[in-house]
């Protein structure tokens, strides 16, 4: 009993988070397939959109963050992640560069909301969406490192499982997650 608990304590506390992105990076993460078994032999998943955990827990060792920072909820979660994680990794192009999520940056927030909620199909009555229905949008979508300090990046849209494994296995081994040149390409 004691031994088992001790063993559990030595496991890496891993979290993944999903900000403004399409969840493709998480899909690619699941594509690690059997490597997932190796991963979870070494790590516990303590927070993730694919696990039903409501609050971001304290004392996380590594957090992979998918998606760009697009609204105030993302901003708050990013701050929580930073405060409670030893290592924060920008996971995928949206977190690293803003990518597709940031395509809206050319539009003002008001124009964007009008275009999406009022000019699109199924007109909604105006008003309320800003702080009742959805979290307030930031004026510009930002890559994660422009909001909180980030320790490593895994580029790719989505990053293929090989890249994820290269980075994550390095981190699990306590090394720096530096990817070789071929795995550093955006896109």
């Amino acid at each position: 009993m004691m031994a088992k608990k001790k063993e559990a304590n030595t496991k890496i506390r891993l979290a993944t988070a999903w900000l403004g992105g399409c969840s493709g990076c998480h899909m690619s993460f699941l594509d690690l397939d059997e490597q997932l078994l190796d991963l979870f032999a070494a790590a516990d998943l303590v927070y993730s959109p694919i696990a039903d955990i409501k609050e971001f827990p304290p004392n996380v060792d590594v957090t992979l963050v998918e998606g760009a920072v697009a609204n105030v909820d993302h901003l708050e979660l990013a701050q929580q992640i930073r405060a409670n994680s030893k290592i924060v990794v920008s996971f995928g192009d949206c977190a690293v560069t803003g990518n597709v999520t940031s395509l809206r940056n050319r539009l003002g927030v008001d124009d964007l909301l009008t275009a999406v909620y009022h000019e699109g199909p199924g007109n909604l009555p105006r008003g309320g969406e800003v702080d009742k229905v959805m979290p307030a949008l930031l004026p510009k979508v930002l890559p994660l490192h422009q909001v909180i300090p980030v320790d490593a990046t895994i580029p790719g849209c989505p990053p293929d499982p090989e890249r994820i494994w290269t980075a994550v296995s390095a981190l699990l081994a306590g090394k720096e997650a530096t990817l070789p040149e071929k795995m550093r390409m955006f896109g």
């Binding site: 560069t97 990518n99 980030v150 990046t153 580029p155 849209c157 390409m185």
Partner: peptide, 24 residues
């Protein structure tokens, strides 16, 4: 936006950035 670019994977800017270690 490399992910949605016609030159994704063949672009000189993209590969120079990777080669020079420009990560963000």
């Amino acid at each position: 936006v490399c992910a949605v670019c016609v030159m994704n994977g063949h672009c000189e800017l993209q590969s120079v950035a990777a080669a020079q270690g420009m990560d963000s």
